[in-house]
Computed example of a mutant assay.
Amino acid sequence: MSTALITGASSGIGAIYARRLAARGNDLVLVARATDRLEALASELREANGISVEVITADLTNASQLQTVLERLRSDPMIDILVNNAGAALVGNFASAEPEKMDALLSLNVVAPTLLTSAVISKMVARGNGSIINIASVLALLPEYSHGIYAATKAYVLTLSQSLAAEVSGKGVYVQAVLPAATRTEIYERAGGDISKVPDVMEVEALVDAALVGFDRRELITIPPVPEVEAWEAFEHARGVLAAGFSNSEPAQRYKSS
């Protein structure tokens, strides 16, 4: 029986991951700030699935509380699946954003998943198996659609996933980046937004179920709302074509003076 650690597990995407992975027979370590919600979910999952569920109350923007989670990742029983789901948004544009709020967002969306992954990856490589699931966003590919730094933080998560996969996939460790579009979670309300004004919102259960299909297929990038995989393949092909020019030792002709 494997063990999955899920951050942001008290609601939304994290809670559905907990229910789905519990139904698959995984023991769980649930991490979030809301102790009451975590304990209620843990009791539900123990009773329904006969599994072990640990609860860690932690605010991942707090260095000492993050350290508690890092220590659990380094300890036994070992973690076989890490779901880096905890995240937040920040409504407003870059020019008007408060530095303290940007710092907190970077801590949660960038620093925390980086350090959590770092804490578990060496053990996964050593034993030749393990999985990292990183929840990014389609805005990682469309930064001009999102003001402020949120899209940039999710672009980091996507790039981290791709570079990490290049490093460890040949060593038995699977990395998946999940890119949701608009999904019905509490992130909008917590950021001060209104989800009722957002069109074409996906239900969280549908999002996670689709992401787990991608997980079972061992996809590196899973984008649940995109109808045709060929669209992503064309994007990747175009990226490769662009990269073919990176090795040129001279500037392109169009950058030379006439």
Rank of each mutant, 00 (worst) to 15 (best):
A4W: 07
A34W: 07
A15P: 05
N26I: 04
G12F: 10
N49V: 09
A15I: 04
L30S: 01
D27H: 11
E71L: 13
N84P: 08
E71V: 12
R37A: 12
Q65D: 11
S96Q: 15
G87D: 03
P99S: 01
T68E: 15
G12P: 09
V53D: 06
R20Q: 15
A97V: 07
N93T: 14
R72W: 08
A63H: 12
E71G: 06
R19Q: 15
D27L: 01
T35W: 02
V53G: 02
N49H: 14
V55S: 08
G12S: 11
I6R: 01
N49W: 04
S11R: 11
P77A: 00
G92C: 00
V55T: 12
E47F: 04
D103Y: 13
I56N: 08
Q67F: 07
L73M: 13
V31P: 07
N109Q: 03
T57G: 13
N85H: 03
L90I: 10
I13Y: 04
V110H: 09
G14E: 07
L41C: 08
S2N: 15
A4S: 09
V110G: 08
N85C: 00
D36K: 07
L82A: 02
E39N: 10
A58D: 06
L90Q: 04
S52W: 03
N26V: 01
I51Y: 00
A104K: 06
A32H: 02
L108M: 09
G14V: 05
S96F: 14
M1V: 15
A34F: 00
A63D: 14
T35K: 11
L70Y: 12
V53K: 06
S107W: 09
A86N: 05
Y17L: 08
A89K: 09
V29K: 02
L21R: 06
L38Q: 11
V31R: 08
K101S: 13
A97L: 09
S75D: 12
R74Y: 13
S96K: 15
L60H: 01
E39R: 09
I56C: 00
D103M: 07
I13Q: 09
R33Q: 04
D27V: 06
A63G: 00
D103Q: 15
Q67R: 14
A15G: 03
S52K: 13
A23Y: 14
G25A: 05
L73K: 07
T61V: 08
V31I: 08
